[in-house]
Design a protein around this nucleic acid. Structure first.
Length: 295
RNA sequence: AGGGGUGUAGUUCAUCGGUAGAAUAGAGGUCUCCAAAACCUUAGAGGAUGGUUCGAUUCCGUCCACCCCUG
């Protein structure tokens, strides 16, 4: 067994649980593939594994950054590949687990990133003006005019390489032989889980965690990105009720789950498993059988 | 029981005697470093029944449902 396993799926289906059960059975170690869990101190909102839940299974790329630091898929790709290669050398099975589809894809596939240079953000130009600039150098672009972030990135790409971003070679080649396992359940059930989990988080430390960040005036990217903190800040300011803030958290989580499905269904070759919530061992065994068959 | 009011999308609310709009929830999608992000697309409605009218969701009657007041 020396293949790379990836466990994907929407938030809340039980990826973490499965990863630990698998790791124990196939001599594996877990590599976090969640963009928000790399940060120290963001625990409740990101549903990070606890020490007890790990059951002795080694975890990588958790808590490796401070909340004022920046961490991107570029960094993740490098870090994760180093760990994967190291584990493979030791004849252990790397198990990538997380909901950040881009991170997983960038690791497993031959995604090419370059060292980021300081870039021009064209602050004085309106969206459409920036778009028109891009059209001049990259008439084939498919980026929507409203998507300023991507437009600017594409413009900077051209400025750097004198090649239209549309012509950048996008390699869909796999670098490893991954077995990509997706956990899923029907939409109603998933939304129920997500809603309940939000209530649970609120009652189990999310308020303290968020309030502490709030009182330290922590507005870094790491704080603003995950769902669970910024939604509570208006509550701390007295602008909305706790119930309203909780509803926003649930809502955003549902939308997030939806986007995750879109990604995993269309960007990666995922083999899906219905989760048996009443008897999770069934799910674990099903997955194990599949892994065995594919190895 | 009597009086009054309201019935339009899952929800909240518009409009109109001539193709019923929006917000929001819902669904689908894009993606080579902001990815728990950013961006795009989209389905869906006049309580029921009779009448007036060329034409009714709109005006009128009846019924039903819900709300308020009185007893």
């Amino acid at each position: 067994m020396h293949k790379v396993i990836a466990i994907v799926g929407p938030t809340g289906v039980g990826k973490t649980k499965l990863s630990i059960e698998l790791a124990k059975k196939i001599n594996g170690e877990v590599i976090n593939a969640d963009s928000t869990q790399v940060y120290r101190g963001l625990d409740v909102a990101t549903a990070k594994v606890t020490k007890e839940e790990m059951k002795g299974v080694k975890h990588h790329l958790l808590d490796i950054k401070e909340i004022n630091e920046n961490y991107t898929v570029y960094d993740y790709q490098k870090d994760a590949r180093l760990i994967i290669d190291d584990l493979l050398k030791q004849h252990k099975t790397p198990i990538l687990v997380g909901g950040t589809g881009l991170y997983i894809k960038a690791v497993l596939y031959d995604y090419q990133f370059e060292e980021e240079k300081p870039k021009n953000t064209y602050p004085k130009l309106k969206d459409l003006e920036v778009y028109n600039l891009l059209l001049e150098v990259d008439p084939k672009t498919t980026i929507h005019p409203n998507n300023r972030k991507r437009i600017i990135r594409a413009l900077n790409y051209f400025n750097e390489h004198q090649v239209p971003f549309s012509d950048k070679i996008k390699n869909d080649k796999l670098l490893y032989e991954p077995i990509i396992i997706g956990l899923t359940t029907d939409r109603d059930k998933l939304y129920e889980i997500i809603n309940n989990r939000a209530d649970k988080m609120i009652n189990n430390g999310l308020l303290d965690e968020a309030r502490s960040l709030y009182s330290h005036n922590a507005y870094s990217k790491a704080i603003i990105t995950p769902i669970g903190y910024k939604e509570l800040f208006p509550y701390f300011k007295g602008k909305i009720s706790l119930k309203e803030a909780t509803e926003v958290i649930k809502q955003s989580s549902r939308k997030y789950a939806k986007r995750q499905y879109t990604w995993f269904n269309n960007q990666m070759n995922v083999h899906w498993f219905e989760v048996d919530f009443d008897n999770f061992d069934n799910t674990v065994n099903e997955v194990l059988d599949y892994i065995e068959k594919e190895s």
